[in-house]
Design a protein around this nucleic acid. Structure first.
Lengths: 126, 126
DNA sequence: TGAAGATATTGATCAGTGTCAATGTCTGTT
DNA sequence: AACAGACATTGACACTGATCAATATCTTCA
């Protein structure tokens, strides 16, 4: 062999912090222990992409924190401070990524957060 | 008043699902109950943006699932299947967003996941 | 000091996305 | 039917970001 192998754990105290995790499972572990294949990575990245915009996060927050857990789209444009088409665009992305549900009632469209889906995504980080 | 107000909860069975949440807190609740201001939304969006790329998710996964919880960068290029500058670019973003720590040991650079930070981000979805 | 290898940086290119004005579609009302 | 209001869609533009080839920087070893 011509190339030398890098050695783990030299004279470093910093490295030991790496093994200190909140969940101390070893086998059959959390999502952190399972290497991601390309397909799953693509899917998960799409979910995070839906969350990677401040307007969408504020929309999601407004929806989640609304009394009754649901809001009319007509009450979202003003607090967000963007144009109606822009808000509509972001709501569409939130809906298509499964983060929120929606229902048309007469002229208005109501949105609510899909908490199960949010839990699901949060679990992928643990 | 000239415009009519939208009414909540008409003859819909779908809407009731909105209130069904896993955490049943009412007061002093989780992140879902607190409306996000613009500054926090920007910061959180940046964190999610770091996670919104399949290559970075696979890198993070490879790092997390490595024995000892840390990996040499030299062992990441081949399994990812991208060029060395591209992998370096993604590792930089993971590091600068605080998702991973790193340490140079001789010629090599070792990476580990910051599980506390990951927990922190996951909590923002609950 | 010079060579070799590991990683980072630069510069260029191309795809993707956030935004808004204008317009379209749908629903309820007169 | 005609109108008004709520929401969605389209088209255009600017900006961001992923990627790689080429190059630079840093570390070890002879």
């Amino acid at each position: 062999m011509t190339t030398k192998q890098p050695k783990r754990r030299t004279t470093s105290g910093r490295a030991s912090q790496a093994t200190a995790r909140s969940t101390t499972k070893v086998c059959c572990g959390t999502a952190r222990d399972i290497p991601l294949n390309e397909r799953d990575a693509d899917e998960l990245a799409t979910a995070f992409a839906a969350l990677a915009d401040p307007v969408r996060l504020r929309l999601l927050s407004l929806i989640s924190s609304a009394p009754g857990g649901e809001v009319c789209a007509c009450d979202l444009v003003t607090p967000i401070g963007k144009s109606q088409p822009t808000v509509s665009h972001h709501l569409r992305i939130l809906f298509e990524s499964g983060l929120v549900g929606r229902e048309k009632r007469g002229v208005w469209v109501w949105y609510w957060a899909d908490n199960d889906r949010l839990d699901e995504i949060a679990d992928r980080l643990r």
